[in-house]
Simulated assay, not measured.
Amino acid sequence: MKQSKFMSLVESLVNIAVGFGISVAAQAFFLPLLGVHISLHANLSFALIMTVISIARQFVMRRIFEALHIRRPLSPFMQAVIAERFRQIEVEGWSADHDAKYPAGVLAKAGASYAIHAGDTKGEHLPVYWPWDWEWWKPQGFRRDMVRGTALMIAEGEKFDNERKRGK
């Protein structure tokens, strides 16, 4: 799931504070072992300088990686699909072991049914390829159906990969 801007800020500030504290502690411990004795003020100043350099380095490297497409941000739709797949696993309990019980293609048929009928919220007829009973067919609107359908396709792909690893 996507992290809120506020939580991103909190995470960054905690990360910076922890890094600063580790730097101060490491300098206080290691510099005397090397025969270098500095005051607490000098230690704090040096740790602050190194923290600012670290923040700048991280900012520049992130921009370089994004420019080189090494780290690509996910679109809101992709984030929603990933969140839905995790919801299926964590809330519904549809784990890899659960999915492994279905014959090949069942999850893909369910995903395709949601994608093909996305936005048909009337639900007056069951899709031809829908693999389960009527009670499990729950269309909810175009985008939500596309998200669920894509997450089900991912579940089928994960099932395939898991079976391939096991040599089935």
Rank of each mutant, 00 (worst) to 15 (best):
G149M: 06
K5E: 14
G21H: 03
I55N: 01
F86L: 08
K5R: 14
L44W: 07
A47H: 05
A67S: 14
V128W: 00
L74D: 12
Y114E: 01
L152W: 06
A100C: 01
Y129L: 13
G19P: 01
E158H: 08
G123K: 05
Q140M: 13
E135A: 03
T51M: 13
V91G: 00
E66A: 15
I70C: 02
G105F: 01
K109Q: 13
R166V: 04
Y102D: 05
F20Y: 15
W132L: 12
V147K: 03
A96S: 15
I82H: 08
V18P: 01
E84I: 00
E124M: 09
Y102I: 01
M50D: 11
A151I: 00
Q3M: 14
D133N: 11
A47T: 07
M78L: 15
I53Y: 08
S39Q: 08
H41V: 13
I38L: 15
E84V: 06
P76G: 08
L13G: 04
S75T: 14
R164Y: 05
V14T: 15
A26N: 06
F77Q: 10
M61K: 05
S95K: 11
A67M: 09
R63I: 07
A47N: 06
F59L: 12
F86S: 11
L48E: 08
D99K: 05
A83Y: 00
G21Y: 00
F59I: 03
R148I: 04
E90V: 05
I82F: 08
L40I: 12
A110C: 04
R144D: 14
Q79D: 11
P139L: 04
V91K: 13
P139Q: 12
E156D: 05
L68Q: 15
A110I: 01
Q3P: 03
A17C: 08
G21F: 03
L34V: 09
K122H: 10
L107A: 06
I53K: 12
Q3W: 06
S54R: 04
S54W: 03
L74N: 13
P131A: 05
W130I: 02
D99N: 14
I53S: 13
G123I: 00
M50W: 02
G111C: 04
A67C: 02
A151Q: 00
S23Q: 12
F6S: 14
M78N: 12
G149T: 05
E66G: 09
P127A: 10
W132G: 04
A83C: 04
P131C: 07
F142H: 13
L40N: 07
L34W: 15
G21S: 14
A67N: 12
F160N: 02
L31H: 10
A42G: 05
F160Y: 13
M146G: 07
I38E: 11
W137V: 00
V91Q: 09
V60C: 12
P139A: 10
A96D: 13
E163P: 02
L44Q: 07
V81G: 11
D145G: 06
M1F: 09
Q27H: 06
G123Y: 01
A110D: 00
I55V: 07
I154D: 07
W132M: 10
I70R: 11
A56F: 08
K101W: 03
V91T: 11
A108N: 02
S75E: 09
E11M: 10
H37M: 08
W137R: 01
E92W: 07
G93K: 03
I64W: 05
